[in-house]
Design a protein around this nucleic acid. Structure first.
Lengths: 157, 157
DNA sequence: CTTGATGCAAAGGATTTGCACAAAT
DNA sequence: ATTTGTGCAAATCCTTTGCATCAAG
């Protein structure tokens, strides 16, 4: 087994789960993906291995419970990405209204600012924050440029 | 008609919708509620007026599209709260892992900090942010106290 | 009158579950 | 050997849609 999977195996077994082939393949698929995947997408990618849809759902449920993956809801559908060992303390997502693309915003300095704010939120409200989900909606830079060009053309007419 | 509903009527009609009794009752229900409601909850509260579930869904879809209400997804279910004319520029939500309650965090100074951060995000990424969804998960102050008490008792045993 | 709105029931899509069987420790 | 995992199909839950009818402007 690849070294990088051993930590996951240990984490699963510590919690009474078996690190089966199904779970391994689902996990690997999420690990290898550059973008967030939903269950259907994961299933499509791995069904050649004879893995059922229910197994994918069950594996992800366990991963989510153990904090291995992070769930992001976009238009009522759940997408998943790695959470632990991912090197990202915070995930800020941005959804473009126009092209519907989801962009990860992970600037070092922004993350730091947000973590500082988290601390303030915790103190002000006497709560403990384990996880934070931040999702912005708006116009991405590409769509923004396109709109600018259109405006220009409208003016010239 | 109550004064405070006229702005909504105008907004709807400007966009080609009729401000019917169904929409009015659904809107009033969300307006009057102190907490976020899901469609089923709204339907339960107003079905005595002979309003069908589909009507509730359709009304909310329009409200959401026009920015009248804000949609919040909690565990795959959509909840709704007022967005425009609500006096809150930003809604930060907190969900307690233990008691599952959803708490609104709306401190003036925090909101200000977040809006400032939004500006920074916009500049760094050359995007425009129309809306932001921030949801924290963790331990609320009440559950935190309870856990503290339990720890105390465990130590004394 | 014309157009959008409604209620109902059926359809749709995502997720869960019951069950018999298979696989892991 | 025992316990958890799996595939399949059925069931469930939330949401949307088609259609005939109704109501608002």
């Amino acid at each position: 087994m690849k070294d990088d999977l051993i930590s996951f195996k240990k984490l699963l077994e510590k919690n009474g789960y078996k690190f089966t082939m199904g779970k391994r393949i689902v996990l690997k698929t999420i690990l290898d993906s550059k973008t967030h995947l939903n269950v259907k997408e994961i299933y499509e990618r791995i069904k050649e291995y004879q893995i059922g849809l229910a197994t994918v759902y069950r594996a992800i449920k366990v991963f989510n419970k153990l904090g291995i993956v992070k769930e992001i809801n976009i238009n009522g559908i759940s997408y998943y990405e790695m959470k632990i060992f991912s090197g990202k303390p915070l995930h800020i997502h941005f959804k473009c209204f126009k092209c519907n693309s989801i962009i990860d915003l992970d600037s070092q300095s922004l993350n730091f600012d947000y973590l500082k704010l988290n601390k303030k939120v915790e103190e002000e409200n006497n709560i403990v924050i384990y996880d934070s989900n931040i999702m912005f909606e708006g116009l991405c830079s590409k769509c923004r440029e396109e709109l600018k060009c259109q405006d220009q053309q409208n003016l010239e007419e």
